[in-house]
Write a protein that binds this DNA or RNA. Structure first.
Lengths: 346, 346
DNA sequence: ATACCTTTTGAAACCCGTTTCAAGATAGTT
DNA sequence: AACTATCTTGAAACGGGTTTCAAAAGGTAT
């Protein structure tokens, strides 16, 4: 039918021969880069459909120095936050005719370096990376494609764009919310402090404590479900009177909930709980999780667009900061929420 | 330091000039494709490190007709099953020096076609796709790279490998488990019946019903959380005496649980619930979800390896079928599980 | 020292779509 | 009719790493 027989194997020179024109003319017909005589155009179109010719993207990419590809480097695909980010980025990219090359570092710094080099050598049009590792500075400087750092921030800014949420403010909002909900004994479960977002969230919490002369109570944790379980057990040993927990992200908040539930501790009656990110999970859980939502869709879209529209204002690199938003659900005691519950149930 | 200054911009010809050898020799040093005089080798290595030369993957790919890339086409990245599959595939690929090009079809058939063409024209080394759409036959035939179809199956087998779970048997196991747990009034929430896996699961359930002379009770649903909520509401209208629900996947099982919970229906005391897949979610939920586990890691690994080792036995295409496994957790009443609970709590 | 074989090496072709550049063709002007 | 301006078109170069092939170099045997 549509000539798929030999299909993709045909080359532009074969098509040209069949249409009795030059390869240049075929190229012009395909890309509309110049006017072509109506007769010849027809012959070319016919030859293309007969052979099922699909131009080789690699050859095109070699010449154009653009693979119409965005490299996406994340610490962990399994983390639902990055999954959702990847999803938005893929959608945005696809809308603009770009593809996504997905790279998972598994939090290994060396991999970040080799992946940046690899993506550059593949003529990727840009890289979106989540890292706060200062060591990659040289690699970012060396590769001459636009780089966007998402979700995190370097101490010293590099020559790349930053797209992230105001995690410091998010930390403050979370702390204040628990206090407003009546918590007297808050414990903050921190994410890894070499990760800028985790550190900023902690600092937000910490500054609220200082402001209100509350004693800081923290636990160290990773962005990981299993670690979250263990840390929560420890937490309950160390702070048996806890009545409010700030978890470093939603995944860990779920760990916390599971441990509390197993021990028969009621949420939010006995302990209130707040997470970060507002990944889809947060709504699936029962009770639904109160959390500081990141505008993941906006972050991903912005990051992708910065690369796609790189021509626009590549002069000075910028920092785009989005606001996190408190989403009150069922793991904290909020008066408004209770009111809302009542109207819904009536 | 390591010559990242001009870095990646250098070409093999520049390196050759600097080392006073031919580009061919540089290539040979880099790839170890032939012996090179020790002197020259040293000069080349020095020139490479001075220029920070990284070979252009696109040029290499053009000649070799291999981009060391696997295309991954999934219906929806947001679906945790595919996320986990992507994660394993990425890991396996990375171990073998391959990259992943991630494509999301959003269940749009046309996109499958263009993405297969696109990946082929990018010299991808193979494609892993989840589809049961017979229309793509021509496209699969036309592209001369190995294709692996995961999770689903075509009515008429095409010339590609199949890697999937025995969904039919899974459906049977789920039905039998609920019956063994004492359910008298089971309703099966079916996934879209044009998707082979959903259909097979239904048929498994159906055959158990026939075998035991139980009346079939089904609802139509999609693999979607929101749709799941609505369908569950309908289900409770239509079958108020239901005491066991088979959900088409874990995500829908969670929808079901949420609706039951909101209505004050106790799980598993009043209604027992089983899902499919055993995505990470299933363990995060409270109560933890009983489900038919797919060996996602094995499926993904096998699929990736089939492409990476395509040289091995590309002669006749094969079908690799894995067994699903019942994982009893907290949404069904299993005696063994109760026993286990008791020992754990004592 | 000569003939012969093996190994190392570089020039050039190759992969294939795009673009440049100049020639050829058409249209328009005087 | 002669000439200029404009458009269409194909040959050839390009991008950059790889491989082929034949020449050059090194080594061995006679």
């Amino acid at each position: 039918m549509c000539g798929l027989g030999r299909g993709i194997l045909a080359s532009i020179r074969e098509v040209a021969k069949l249409a009795n024109v030059s390869p240049a003319t075929v190229s012009r017909v395909m890309n509309g880069t110049a006017k072509v005589d109506a007769d010849k155009r027809e012959r070319v179109l016919k030859a293309i459909s007969e052979t099922g010719f699909v131009p080789n993207e690699v050859a095109r990419s070699l010449f154009k120095k653009s693979a119409k590809t965005i490299g996406l480097i994340v610490p962990s695909i399994d983390n639902p936050f990055f999954t959702q980010l990847a999803s938005v980025i893929e959608r945005t990219a696809d809308e603009h005719g770009y593809r996504i090359l997905l790279c998972n570092t598994g939090n290994m710094v060396e991999k970040e370096k080799t992946m940046i080099q690899m993506l550059t050598s593949m003529n990727a049009d840009g890289i979106i990376i989540t890292t706060s590792n200062e060591e990659i500075r040289d690699y970012i400087d060396a590769c001459n494609i636009p780089i966007v750092i998402t979700d995190r921030r370097m101490k010293k800014l590099m020559k790349c764009d930053y797209v992230h949420c105001d995690h410091y403010e998010g930390g403050k909002i979370a702390a204040r919310h628990l206090i407003e909900c009546g918590c007297k004994n808050i414990v903050c479960i921190n994410g890894p402090q070499d990760v800028s977002s985790a550190k900023a969230r902690y600092e937000g919490y910490s500054d609220v404590c200082k402001e209100l002369h509350i004693k800081e109570q923290c636990m160290d944790c990773d962005y990981d479900f299993e670690v979250g379980l263990a840390v929560t057990e420890e937490l309950l040993e160390k702070y048996p009177e806890v009545d409010g927990i700030i978890a470093c992200n939603d995944m860990v908040a779920i760990s916390v909930y599971k441990v509390l539930h197993k021990r028969g501790i009621k949420v939010p009656e006995q302990v209130q709980l707040i997470g970060f990110d507002d990944v889809q999970l947060a709504r699936l859980l029962t009770p639904e999780l109160t959390t500081i939502a990141q505008p993941i869709d906006e972050i991903g879209k912005k990051a992708a667009e910065l690369i796609i529209n790189k021509g626009e204002c590549n002069a000075d690199k910028q920092e785009y900061i989005f606001k996190g938003q408190l989403v009150v659900r069922e793991t904290t005691n909020n008066k408004k929420e209770e009111l809302h519950e009542k109207t819904r149930n009536s």
